[in-house]
């Protein structure tokens, strides 16, 4: 909000100072006139960002077109062979399928809980305000620590989840050693680590909504559910889009949770594309092949992002 307000103010000010330069201002353009300084100032950041982010990505895409015939030999140009080989293998499609479940699970559960909890936090004011800060706790810890915590909770013998299920007479599974249930734990852990930002984002959106909309809905006799469905959620579309993009991005490209929690197991049942890429690169040491998969992930991420924005356009309120 502040950024937008400030930037919209800015061009006006620029023009003004340019116009008044010849007029009555005693020292026109006192600030920001040096020619070389801005380049000097932005140089270190631009350098580090290029070296750490821009160059590696471009180099990675380029190197995905090469291949070393054998480990240790020089890399040779192979064109798109790494990609065609990737698409021919069944591992790729299996990991794509698992990634689909992972992303869909994280986005669905993340958005549902995110909406529910942000509505709850919206009403947490006064002496409950600390809850907003407390909600951020999972965001502050590493994926590995989160994995340790969830491994304890979902432990088949001593976990709190199975103790809870036992109350209802349900014999809980050995969550992380069962190929059918391991993905559930991975999704729950990922949602847990991603939810704080989602909630904060939606809460920020909620707080910018004009209260008169709610009042109008109340006067019209809308039930709380109707208010959420027809007033709040449509007004929250921009934040919901950003939240969806962020949840999808963090799952599609996230490696930390999977690696720390299951390492892709049991029997590869949680090997997502990111995990598969890690395996190809650092277990099989086929770096160029891994780079091809990484490029596929980048493209998929871009495609999904565009798709979310497209879908969201349909739900936007025409102004």
């Amino acid at each position: 909000m502040t950024a937008v307000a400030a930037s919209s103010k800015k061009p006006k000010k620029k023009k003004k100072s340019a116009n008044t330069a010849t007029e009555n201002r005693s020292q026109p353009g006192l600030i920001g006139q040096n020619k070389a300084l801005p380049y000097l100032f932005s140089f270190p950041a631009v350098m580090v960002v290029s070296a750490i982010l821009a160059y590696p990505v471009l180099a990675g895409i380029y190197q995905s077109l090469f291949r070393a015939p054998e480990l240790g030999l020089d890399e040779e140009w192979v064109g798109l062979d790494n990609y065609t080989d990737l698409f021919k293998g069944s591992d790729f499609w299996a990991s794509l399928y698992r990634t689909g479940i992972f992303v869909a699970g994280n986005v669905t559960v993340g958005l549902t809980l995110g909406l529910f909890f942000s509505f709850a936090l919206y009403r947490a004011v006064g002496k409950f305000r600390w809850m907003r800060a407390a909600t951020l706790a999972p965001y502050l810890i590493s994926n590995v620590a989160a994995a340790v915590m969830f491994r304890l909770m979902f432990n088949g013998d001593l976990g709190v989840i199975n103790s809870f299920l036992a109350w209802f007479g349900i014999d809980g599974p050995l969550w992380l050693s069962d190929t059918k249930t391991a993905m559930i734990v991975v999704i729950m852990t990922q949602v847990w680590t991603d939810l704080p930002l989602t909630v904060l984002l939606l809460l920020g959106g909620l707080m910018t909504i004009d209260k008169s909309y709610f009042d109008a809905a109340l006067v019209d006799g809308a039930s709380p559910l109707e208010r959420a469905r027809f007033v709040t959620i449509p007004l929250l579309v921009p934040q919901l889009v950003i939240a969806t993009v962020w949840l999808s991005y963090s799952t599609l490209t996230g490696l930390g949770v999977v690696l720390a929690l299951t390492g892709g197991g049991p029997l590869g049942s949680t090997t997502t594309m990111a995990m598969e890429m890690y395996n190809i690169a650092f277990r099989a040491l086929k770096f160029n092949e891994a780079l091809a998969l990484a490029t596929v992930i980048l493209v998929l991420n871009a495609v999904l992002t565009l798709m979310y924005v497209r879908i969201a356009k349909r739900f936007e309120i025409p102004s």
Binding site: K14, F41, V46, V49, A54, P56, V57, A281, L291, A294
Partner: peptide
């Protein structure tokens, strides 16, 4: 503060990588 040439280009350049997932730079780095 400065209105220098390439300001928008450079700003964009420092922001664009924000979209790059770490998975894409893991092997190259």
């Amino acid at each position: 503060r400065f209105n220098f040439r390439g300001r928008h280009l450079l700003l964009l350049f420092t922001l664009l990588p924000r979209l790059v997932p770490s998975i894409g730079v893991l092997v190259p780095i």
